[in-house]
């Protein structure tokens, strides 16, 4: 089926609805794509950053552990909205930045938003993983030592795999929180789901349909994420289930 045919079918279903036209639904769709893209990329980079940071957070070197602690302290201690404002409006007024190569990234609202979201989620994820690493059972570590494993090997084979499993439920929460927190992206002109809802609201003065529709989309997204993590937990945490013999 071609795009035009699809649009015509949708237009038929809409049946002359004033607010939900093919035009505004297209806006919601663009918003959906932007939200998913923004959240997915920042979570992915945030996760990649969080693993080494979580290991470093427990490092015996005070300089390393304390500076990582300071980073998570700052990013968890301030509202994401403030971080987003700083990334978007703050950087743009650094003298000389408009003439440098960095301007390409600062100019577009997407990159400052990605920057703020990534650092924020990385800070939370670091603390989640750090907690999980710290709570590794002593027996597992002693057993690994008894096998003569090096520290790196112990980390790779024993501590991290079990820590990830224990961190999974908390991390699933963080992913959902991130999705919900991304609703503030519209304040820096990104047309995310909330931005699209806001546009429809202010154009038709119809807050209820505009926001209830977008709430359902967010809910569907949240439930899909929840389902995904439940599936993962079922597979990976099978050894923690009570034994019904």
């Amino acid at each position: 089926m071609s795009v035009e045919q699809l649009l015509q079918t949708i237009a038929g279903y809409l049946n002359g609805n004033d607010i939900f036209t093919v035009n505004t639904l297209g806006m919601y769709w663009d918003g959906f794509v932007n939200t998913v893209q923004l959240v997915f990329i920042s979570l992915l980079i945030g996760l990649a950053l969080a693993v080494p940071l979580a290991i470093g957070r427990g490092s015996p070197l005070k300089l390393v552990s304390k500076s990582i602690w300071l980073y998570t302290y700052i990013f968890r201690g301030t509202p994401l909205l403030i971080q987003l404002y700083l990334a978007y409006y703050g950087f743009a007024f650094v003298p000389g930045i408009q003439d440098s190569w960095l301007w390409f990234f600062v100019q577009d609202p997407l990159y400052p938003a990605l920057f703020a979201f990534t650092l924020n989620t990385a800070a939370y994820t670091t603390e989640i993983f750090h907690g999980a690493i710290k709570s590794t059972a002593k027996g597992e570590i002693e057993a690994a030592r008894a096998f003569g494993m090096s520290k790196a090997m112990m980390m790779r084979r024993i501590i991290l795999p079990s820590a990830f499993r224990r961190a999974l439920p908390a991390y699933g929460n963080e992913v959902i929180f991130m999705l919900h927190a991304s609703a503030i992206a519209s304040v820096v002109t990104i047309m995310d789901l909330t931005g699209a809802a806001y546009y429809v609201y202010s154009r038709f003065y119809a807050p209820f349909p505009a926001f209830i529709f977008v709430a359902f989309i967010y809910m569907a997204l949240s439930f899909s994420i929840q389902g995904f993590f439940r599936h993962l937990e079922k597979r990976l945490l099978v050894h923690l289930k009570p034994n019904n013999r």
Binding site: T189, M191, S202
Partner: peptide, 26 residues
């Protein structure tokens, strides 16, 4: 740049959507 949802936003969305990049602000 335009204030989101006000009449100028409607004007730009209708006549300049293909020409200009429209940034909408609160």
């Amino acid at each position: 740049g335009v204030q989101r949802g006000d009449i100028r936003d409607n004007y730009l969305s209708e006549f300049y959507a293909d020409t200009l990049t429209i940034r909408r602000y609160a």
